[in-house]
């Protein structure tokens, strides 16, 4: 970890807390930061606030904020981890087809699994489980296509991911066409994402796999660093490459699956955040993984504030905003990559 890394992580954490307070205050009823803090304190008996404010904060806005934090950190950290796996900074859950697989799994569960979904307790877990399965299957497929004689080619994996993502989105299209309108949310939700479905129940579903995933990823930070040397070289210094790759892919698929099942496909977070993280902190995953979790959370939190305020009372799909911010950065990376071999 570089010497300035703890300071940057600290600043990110502070920014995140401020972002939460700002986000909680924005909406149809505007609340000042003081009101927000009062309502937060009132819940634990530290302050007084109007019951209406408390209800807005805790029942309406807080689930959405927490979901943004969870999903943003999942996308940011798994983007960084997957880039470590394929040793390519252009990898991203969306570009690699991980998100597409998750969305296809989720849509398939919703369209085809209606009877099970009606079950009050099992139903809520079916969609994320299907999303996780889809994410894992597509990632494994992309990996197996990209592995030749025990080595992974980052470029091949990206190309495979693009093909797989296209196939998944076609599959989603077919399923949505087959489904009756009532059974399913919109194409927009699955292709551009939204935090609009946030409730405490949804937060609960997303929290378990994402917290688990984010908790496990740092254990592989050092191995991911060593993997940057090349797969053969990583083995030379003692890394069990196959095992590390399959664990990191599993954990990332878990986190991305949960994110997609609850918020649809939100692109570019997993691409842009690690890119910015690396330019601030260097490539070492020990600092990068927590920074990308914090940075992804911050990006999605602020993105969501914009998404629900710029065209109020309606909402922009959050994926539109992340693409608006992310696509130019991707293009800049490609341009820079000509000189610096991003596609190595």
């Amino acid at each position: 970890m570089r010497p300035h890394a703890p300071r940057i992580l600290g600043l990110l954490a502070i920014a995140l807390v401020l972002g939460v307070v700002i986000s909680l205050g924005r909406g149809a009823v505007a609340l000042s930061p003081v009101d927000v803090l009062r309502s937060l304190g009132a819940k634990v008996g530290l302050a007084e606030a109007s019951p209406q404010d408390i209800a807005i904060i805790w029942s309406v806005r807080m689930p959405r904020v927490v979901l943004a934090l969870l999903v943003g950190s999942a996308l940011g950290a798994s983007g960084a981890a997957l880039q470590g796996v394929v040793r390519n900074s252009l990898a991203d859950p969306t570009l690699l087809g991980v998100s597409g697989g998750a969305a296809l799994g989720a849509v398939a569960a919703i369209v085809l699994g209606a009877p099970v979904l009606a079950h009050p307790t099992a139903g809520i877990w079916i969609v994320p489980a299907a999303a996780f399965t889809g994410a894992l299957a597509t990632t494994r497929l992309a990996l197996s296509l990209a592995r030749v004689e025990g080595a992974t080619s980052g470029v091949t994996m990206l190309l495979a991911g693009i093909g797989i993502a296209a196939l998944c989105s076609a599959g989603i299209g077919v399923l949505l066409y087959l489904a009756d309108d009532a059974a399913i949310r919109s194409v927009t939700f699955w292709s551009l994402g939204s935090l609009g479905g946030a409730t405490w129940a949804v937060v609960g579903v997303a929290a378990l796999p994402i917290v688990l995933g984010l908790g496990v990823l740092p254990r592989y930070a050092r191995s991911l660093d060593q993997l940057a040397l090349g797969e053969m070289e990583a083995r030379h210094v003692g890394v069990d490459v196959e095992r590390v790759i399959s664990r990191v892919v599993l954990v990332s698929a878990l986190a991305v699956g949960a994110a997609v099942a609850t918020c649809g496909v939100i692109g570019f977070v997993g691409l842009v955040v690690p890119y910015l993280g690396r330019s601030l902190l260097g490539p070492s995953h020990r600092a990068l993984l927590p920074a990308c979790a914090l940075g992804g959370a911050l990006l999605l939190l602020l993105g969501d504030v914009l998404a629900r305020t710029v065209v109020a009372p309606t909402e922009l799909p959050i994926g539109v905003l992340t693409a608006l911010a992310g696509a130019p950065i991707l293009l800049a990376m490609v341009r820079k990559g000509r000189a610096q071999a991003v596609l190595a």
Partner: peptide, 8 residues
Amino acid sequence: SELSLAFT
């Protein structure tokens, strides 16, 4: 070695 990340 193909190391392309900006490690020092």
